[in-house]
């Protein structure tokens, strides 16, 4: 065996010795779990999780029946509507974040103070922020509204069915805004100063600089965030587990939370799992082409996404 061949063998041995464990983990816990999920969608399970027969498309039929039913299981339908609604309304966070980040980048009044405060949700744990928000809305907000605005009957926004969805949606946008503002601000700070200066020399004003120079230069980050958001369309749970554990009111239901709730409530009864697996396949089949379609469209504008 020549020295070159020996070295090559040694190199490959080294590389695969590093990769072997991650690859096994990937094969078992990524490929295996997804494969198991697909198979599960076509099976019947008993309470203990033993396969009791081939279900064909019955689990899918059951899911579509539940989705179409007007009274039987409205939580799935509400979940689908809320997931889409949350995603669409959540999009307003993007332009707001870009505008605010640009103004911070342009060093508006007290920009250092704002940048520090906006960083707080990243430092303080999300878990604490979520639960403090919950307690604050339930306990302190009605008193504050009463004292400041004289609103004696200010409702409990997370206890009154009319406001629960809106409040949890507000929380998602409110707490998520800080992260995107920081991300966009740091991306803007990485822009080469000479590009901005040459744009100014060419007579670009505040808005032209933002729209024609800065936004395209951080387009990759904005596009990636947007695609990540779409890919989590039916997996995002929002703050529902922190707010209500596994007993959230039906009006705030979303699909991500529905999966968690159903699995955790039925830890010792597997009979409903195949229908959930079928449901997951349907939502995956809807989301995959959507993600790649949007990615294709964004790639035409911003190739680096």
């Amino acid at each position: 065996m020549t020295q070159k061949l020996k070295n090559n063998l040694k190199k490959h041995l080294f590389v695969y010795s590093i990769l072997i464990y991650p690859l096994i983990m990937f094969a078992v816990f990524w490929v295996g779990i997804n494969f198991n999920s697909v198979i599960m969608a076509f099976q019947y399970y008993d309470k203990m999780g033993n396969v009791t027969g081939f279900a064909g498309f019955n689990n899918f039929i059951e899911f579509f029946k539940n989705l179409a039913a007007k009274s039987a299981d409205i939580t799935i339908r509400t979940g689908v509507i809320n997931s889409i609604r949350t995603f669409c309304i959540g999009l307003i966070g993007y332009p707001i974040s870009v505008i605010v980040a640009y103004c911070l980048y342009k060093k508006v009044l007290f920009y250092k103070v704002y940048r520090f405060i906006v960083m707080i949700p990243q430092i303080v744990s999300g878990f604490v922020l979520t639960l403090v928000f919950h307690k604050f809305v339930e306990n302190a907000l009605p008193s504050i509204m009463n004292v400041i605005f004289n609103l004696e009957d200010f409702p409990n926004l997370l206890g009154d069915a009319r406001y629960t969805y809106g409040t949890s949606l507000f929380f998602s946008i409110w707490s998520g805004l800080a992260g995107t503002i920081l991300l966009f601000t740091s991306s803007l700070n990485n822009i080469d100063v000479s590009i901005i200066e040459s744009a100014r020399l060419d007579g670009a004003n505040f808005f032209q600089e933002m729209w024609f120079i800065c936004v395209p230069l951080i387009g990759g980050i904005i596009g990636t965030g947007f695609i990540t958001n779409i890919s989590s369309l039916f997996t995002a749970e929002g703050p529902l587990v922190a707010f209500w554990e596994f007993g959230a009111p039906p009006e705030v239901m979303n699909i991500g939370y529905y999966f968690t709730q159903q699995v955790m409530r039925n830890k010792d009864n597997f009979t409903g799992y195949p229908m959930l697996a079928a449901m997951g396949l349907v939502f995956t089949a809807v989301t995959v082409p959507l993600v790649y379609l949007v990615k294709g469209i964004i790639n035409k504008v911003v190739p680096e996404v």
Partner: peptide, 8 residues
């Protein structure tokens, strides 16, 4: 976007 693998 893989959805609903929690049961598996």
């Amino acid at each position: 976007p893989i959805v609903g693998t929690l049961p598996a």
